[in-house]
């Protein structure tokens, strides 16, 4: 038996909306520690890792580890039916190939029950080591989204360079070139407005912009984004979900032929 209650159905809806273009099917692994999902996009260039800790839920019960394979577009269709301030309860047991989403209005006057068919998904589960990165940049998530979208109109790839003074994003295309330089900014009223650059050694890597633009669909989930880079390693783009977990996106760098 699995049962979990979230104060805001809208949170899960937003999470699924932010990843469902990248991955259409995925398996949620449920255990006493929470709900986890790890999946690669169909071209195996990027990977999404979602972690929702059990202590971030209002109620969380998982008698034993349990896998729930879901089509994320179908899940999104159901989550869209939740009211803005509805609570969400998820229920599933191993006897049925279904997960139930219960949406309850704040005054308890409306209770909607949606049952989603579960599916068997065969996927590779990858071990992601907790690596030390050469550079870690935290910046407002809206700023990162603007940068990748702006550069996406110029070129297909972005070259990210981190030095101790700044982080540069550069793109080139048929119409010309663009460089956006962000300096460290610590003296802000709100901590989420900061741009923080931690550099062990300078890095310079190139990534496909369309994936980064896709990752930035998660912008509404967190005011700040953390970008972790090491030479010849996948970049990590992390959105922390306050009090419950994170969504991390991994993207392999472009390698020169």
């Amino acid at each position: 038996m699995f049962e979990a209650q979230m104060a805001q159905a809208a949170l899960l809806k937003q999470i699924i909306e932010s990843i469902r273009e990248l991955i259409t099917e995925a398996t949620f692994e449920v255990s006493g520690t929470g709900m986890m999902l790890q999946a690669m996009d169909s071209s195996h260039v990027s990977l999404v890792a979602l972690n929702l800790r059990s202590d971030g839920f209002q109620l969380f019960r998982a008698d034993r580890p349990f896998s729930m394979g879901m089509n994320l577009n179908h899940m999104a269709k159901m989550l869209k039916c939740a009211g803005k301030d509805d609570t969400l309860t998820m229920r599933a047991d191993e006897a049925n190939d279904l997960v139930t989403f219960l949406f309850e209005s704040p005054g308890n006057e409306r209770l909607a029950e949606f049952e989603l068919k579960l599916m068997d998904i065969t996927s590779e589960n990858l071990g992601i080591p907790d690596a030390e990165y050469s550079a870690t940049v935290s910046m407002p998530s809206a700023e990162f989204q603007r940068i990748v979208k702006d550069l996406g109109s110029i070129g297909d790839t972005v070259e990210i360079t981190v030095t101790k003074d700044d982080v540069r994003f550069a793109a080139s295309g048929d119409i010309g070139n663009a460089t956006i330089k962000c300096r460290q900014l610590l003296d802000t009223e709100k901590p989420e407005d900061r741009t923080l650059i931690e550099m062990v050694e300078p890095v310079n890597l190139t990534f496909a912009l369309r994936y980064l633009i896709n990752f930035s669909k998660a912008t509404s989930l967190a005011p700040s984004v953390t970008i972790k880079l090491s030479t010849e390693m996948p970049v990590v783009v992390e959105y922390k979900l306050s009090d419950i977990g994170y969504v991390r996106f991994y993207l392999a760098p472009k390698i020169e032929d």
Partner: peptide
């Protein structure tokens, strides 16, 4: 895609 390695090649299989 050309010049674009498989993400799985960076991680260990479980």
């Amino acid at each position: 895609p050309a010049g674009q390695p498989n993400i799985a090649s960076f991680f260990t299989k479980r």
